[in-house]
Design a protein around this nucleic acid. Structure first.
Length: 227
DNA sequence: CAATGATCATCC
DNA sequence: GGATGATCATTG
């Protein structure tokens, strides 16, 4: 695929994103010369990567914003029949060391979520991957309520990690922001700290936004996936 | 190898 | 049906 240049402005990015809305993934994939996988079982990130390609994201797989120059994060959101995201939304890796002195506003997760371009994509049960339609993009910046809600969850979670209690965290922590495993498999290990403050190996984890959080973003916007 | 793009698979 | 824990492909 010939890469398209990153958008030079937010307006240009939004223009591109609006041009995708209402269209089927099959059409977009054809234009980007991308084959459609027969299933997502072995192509879990396919939609996100297709949209990156179509919109000219340049952040790659590094810990950087998707649109470097614009400081914008791109997220696809699979929309179920009930209007909720079918899945939680991965944001970034959870830091497991050097937690002391880190505030919410300085954290990588807060900076990533400072500006997000959400692209809703239909994910109805009867649909094939190619026939799923892209919805209206939503350029989002957290409002004060959303910021406080995320910050509150984050502070609770990070305190556990900082005290060496990361093993006690499970997916039930956090009203809107949760921590879940994010690894090749359950045997993966990353450096962390234990209760005695010593280095120890633990499962790598990620921050995820619950569907009840992303639903509020969807509800504030007209994103209608169907025509 | 680790961070990214996420969805899958199972349990309740 | 929803949520949690497990997993897959790609990239720098």
């Amino acid at each position: 695929m010939q890469k398209i240049a990153p958008p030079k402005s937010i307006e240009s990015l939004l223009h591109r994103a609006h041009a995708l809305s209402g269209r089927k993934l099959a059409e977009i994939a054809a234009e980007c010369r991308q084959p459609i996988p027969s299933s997502q079982k072995r192509a879990k990130g396919w939609i996100g990567q297709l949209l990156e390609l179509a919109l000219g994201a340049d952040g790659g797989s590094q810990a950087l914003h998707d649109f470097l120059a614009l400081g914008v994060e791109l997220k696809s959101l699979p929309i179920a029949e009930n209007g909720y995201a079918r899945e939680s939304t991965y944001v970034c890796t959870v830091p497991l060391t050097d937690l002391t002195g880190c505030s919410w506003s300085e954290s990588w997760i807060a900076r990533k979520l400072h500006r997000v371009l959400w692209i809703p994509v239909e994910a109805f049960r009867h649909q094939s991957l190619g026939e799923r339609r892209v919805g209206q993009p939503i350029l989002w910046q957290p409002n004060s309520w959303e910021t406080s809600a995320l910050q509150a969850d984050w502070e609770e979670l990070v305190e556990f990690i900082a005290l060496g209690d990361v093993e006690e965290i499970n997916g039930q922590f956090g009203q809107y922001l949760q921590i879940r495993p994010k690894a090749a498999d359950a045997k993966a290990r990353r450096l962390g700290i234990n209760v005695d403050g010593y280095n120890s190996l633990t499962l790598p984890r990620g921050f995820y936004l619950r569907p009840k959080f992303t639903k509020q973003i969807l509800d504030r916007n007209l994103y209608f996936v169907s025509e």
